[in-house]
Simulated assay, not measured.
Amino acid sequence: TERGQNDFIYHAYDTPQDWGEKDLLIFYWFGTGSGKRIEILVYAPEGTRFDFIFKDDFAGWKRMVVPLDSFIVREGNPSWSSVKTIFLRFTIDSPYTGTFYLDRLVLDVAPKEEEGDVKLMSEDFQTFVGILLSFFAVTFLPGVTWALFVFRARGWIKLIALSFGLSLSLVFLTTFLLNLALGLTISKVSAIFTVAFITVLPPALHYFRKITKGSS
């Protein structure tokens, strides 16, 4: 397929279908390992739609199991009891030229796990979890180790308050100094190493002092 021409697979029902009693959308997808994003659009009915996105990040046939409650509402007020059309296409930000294969698309009411199943989670939910964990790692985790091992904080309220303040200060200061001294720009990799270094440093120094005292 080529984006802008026959760039999708779709099926339009003659009459609206009731998927309200179903739980899962199951199909077989032949992956090419392209890393491209594939969008599943369910119009229910026309003018309203559900949406789900997964990645073509594997090779060969895989049985894909998508819970209907993982779809998000993209347009209007769609209803699973009035499904009219289903599309599979590459997203606009993942242009692709080539061939892709789909087989045995069915609905089911209960999970039937099979070896090799790929259980999909909404990409929007994955993004949300990633942002939440990143926020926790930057604004709280480094400060906890400094509050415990350097400032000897006691009590939950004091520990939490000190952890947030120390995390923000230390991450900002360390990033600024690394940029000033080494010209290190902020990237995903540098941010991970910076946060990891700040977090590990206090307990490492603490146990190093214990070892040196014990050996003297």
Rank of each mutant, 00 (worst) to 15 (best):
F164P: 00
S134I: 12
I131C: 04
V138L: 12
V106A: 11
F151H: 07
S122Y: 04
I86C: 08
D108W: 04
K112Y: 06
W146D: 02
V83F: 06
E115K: 13
A153H: 05
Y96I: 04
V73K: 14
E75S: 10
V144F: 07
S163W: 01
E75C: 03
S167L: 01
A161R: 12
L166I: 04
Q126D: 12
L105D: 04
R74L: 02
S82N: 15
F71A: 01
G60D: 09
E75A: 08
K62S: 06
F90A: 07
S94E: 08
L133A: 12
S163R: 00
L105A: 14
I131N: 09
L132T: 13
N77R: 15
F125A: 10
A161P: 04
S94G: 07
Q126W: 09
F135E: 07
F140A: 00
S94P: 08
D124M: 08
E115S: 11
K112W: 03
E115P: 14
D108K: 08
E75V: 01
L107I: 06
I92K: 15
K112I: 05
Y101D: 14
I72G: 10
P111Y: 09
S134Y: 08
Y101N: 13
V109Y: 05
T97W: 09
S79T: 15
E113T: 07
S70W: 07
L159S: 02
W156L: 09
F151W: 13
V144S: 03
G76F: 07
G155L: 11
G155T: 10
R104G: 06
I92N: 13
E115R: 10
S163I: 00
A161D: 01
F149T: 12
S82T: 14
Y96N: 06
V109D: 14
G76R: 00
Y101E: 14
N77E: 14
K62T: 01
F135V: 15
I72T: 15
L166Q: 01
F87G: 06
L141G: 03
S122V: 01
S79D: 15
I131K: 09
